[in-house]
Computed example of a mutant assay.
Amino acid sequence: MGTALVTGATAGIGLAFARELAVRGHDLVLVARTMPRLEEVAAELRSAHGVGVEVLVADLSFDVETRLVAQRLADSTRPVDLLVNNAGFGLGHGFLDGDLADEERALDVMVRAVMVLSHAAARAMRERGHGAIINVSSVSGFVVMSSYSAVKSFVTVFTEALANELRGTGVTATALCPGFTRTEFHDRAAMDMSRLPGPLWLDADRLVRDCLADVARGRVLSVPGPAYKATMALLKVTPRPLVRRVSGAIGAGRRTR
């Protein structure tokens, strides 16, 4: 089944990807910041599914560590057939209310690292004539919720541009654009999600399966869940001033508890 490399692989959507890919028989390269948790997840997947699992400790906010992951992706003797750029985090405050260093770290992890790793993977895959890249973006990239929306907007458009370059090579690029998903993501960012209606929450395992089905179909954008598919259709025809006003009201309600 080949080898998949997943960043941010020990929690949330990244862990759901790792588990689903192991179920499907993929060997794995798991990337995260802490070795104990990496080893725990690797042992779980090896035991449950009999797949090979490598671990790479890397903090993608540091360029030198990102480059080490890129070297692994470029290694032709151990080819990676699927890259899942998932690592990321939210900020539970507005752009002007937080530390600029946090904003810069967000750019490093969710913009620079996505570019560096996509570049390494796409070149290696193009040379072999097959492969797939999934960049985890967000529906928030189509609205206006502080700098996180800007970051995810970049990821989506970058992935679309990459997909254009890769057309006809046997390699695909897909931007996964989920909405609110039941993981620890919002708790880590100290966001108050208590008022969000139940139907708007996505299940991470289902989201991953739907995304992999879209990748198999060659889709460039993967938007899981009927509510968010409808939201995307509505956003296409909604005037931007209205998008800004509604986004601002929602964003204010989600910030620090």
Score class of each variant (00 low, 15 high):
residue 147 S to Y: 15
residue 149 S to W: 12
residue 150 A to F: 13
residue 150 A to P: 13
residue 151 V to H: 11
residue 151 V to I: 15
residue 152 K to T: 14
residue 154 F to M: 10
residue 154 F to H: 14
residue 154 F to A: 08
residue 155 V to D: 01
residue 158 F to I: 13
residue 159 T to H: 02
residue 160 E to S: 11
residue 160 E to F: 10
residue 162 L to I: 07
residue 162 L to E: 02
residue 163 A to N: 12
residue 164 N to Q: 15
residue 165 E to S: 13
residue 165 E to T: 09
residue 165 E to K: 06
residue 166 L to R: 05
residue 166 L to K: 00
residue 167 R to D: 08
residue 167 R to V: 14
residue 167 R to E: 10
residue 168 G to C: 13
residue 169 T to M: 09
residue 170 G to L: 11
residue 170 G to W: 09
residue 170 G to Q: 09
residue 172 T to E: 04
residue 172 T to S: 05
residue 173 A to G: 07
residue 174 T to C: 05
residue 174 T to R: 03
residue 176 L to V: 11
residue 177 C to A: 01
residue 178 P to L: 05
residue 179 G to K: 01
residue 179 G to S: 03
residue 179 G to Y: 02
residue 181 T to W: 01
residue 181 T to K: 04
residue 182 R to E: 01
residue 183 T to E: 00
residue 183 T to R: 00
residue 184 E to Y: 00
residue 185 F to L: 01
residue 185 F to K: 02
residue 186 H to A: 06
residue 187 D to H: 05
residue 188 R to M: 04
residue 188 R to C: 05
residue 188 R to V: 08
residue 189 A to Q: 10
residue 190 A to S: 10
residue 190 A to R: 11
residue 190 A to M: 11
residue 192 D to E: 08
residue 194 S to D: 04
residue 194 S to F: 08
residue 196 L to P: 03
residue 199 P to W: 04
residue 199 P to I: 05
residue 200 L to I: 00
residue 201 W to I: 00
residue 201 W to R: 01
residue 201 W to F: 04
residue 202 L to Q: 02
residue 203 D to E: 12
residue 204 A to M: 09
residue 204 A to W: 05
residue 205 D to L: 04
residue 208 V to L: 07
residue 209 R to P: 10
residue 209 R to E: 14
residue 209 R to V: 13
residue 210 D to Q: 12
residue 210 D to S: 11
residue 212 L to T: 04
residue 213 A to L: 15
residue 213 A to Q: 15
residue 213 A to D: 15
residue 215 V to T: 06
residue 215 V to A: 06
residue 217 R to K: 15
residue 217 R to M: 15
residue 218 G to F: 06
residue 220 V to K: 03
residue 221 L to C: 01
residue 221 L to H: 05
residue 221 L to W: 01
residue 222 S to L: 06
residue 224 P to K: 06
residue 227 A to M: 04
residue 228 Y to H: 07
residue 230 A to E: 10
residue 231 T to A: 12
residue 231 T to R: 05
residue 232 M to W: 13
residue 233 A to D: 09
residue 235 L to T: 06
residue 236 K to T: 07
residue 237 V to E: 08
residue 237 V to T: 12
residue 238 T to D: 02
residue 239 P to S: 14
residue 239 P to L: 15
residue 239 P to T: 15
residue 239 P to I: 14
residue 243 V to R: 09
residue 244 R to M: 10
residue 244 R to N: 08
residue 245 R to E: 11
residue 246 V to S: 13
residue 249 A to Q: 11
residue 252 A to I: 09
residue 253 G to V: 13
residue 253 G to F: 10
residue 255 R to V: 12
residue 256 T to M: 14
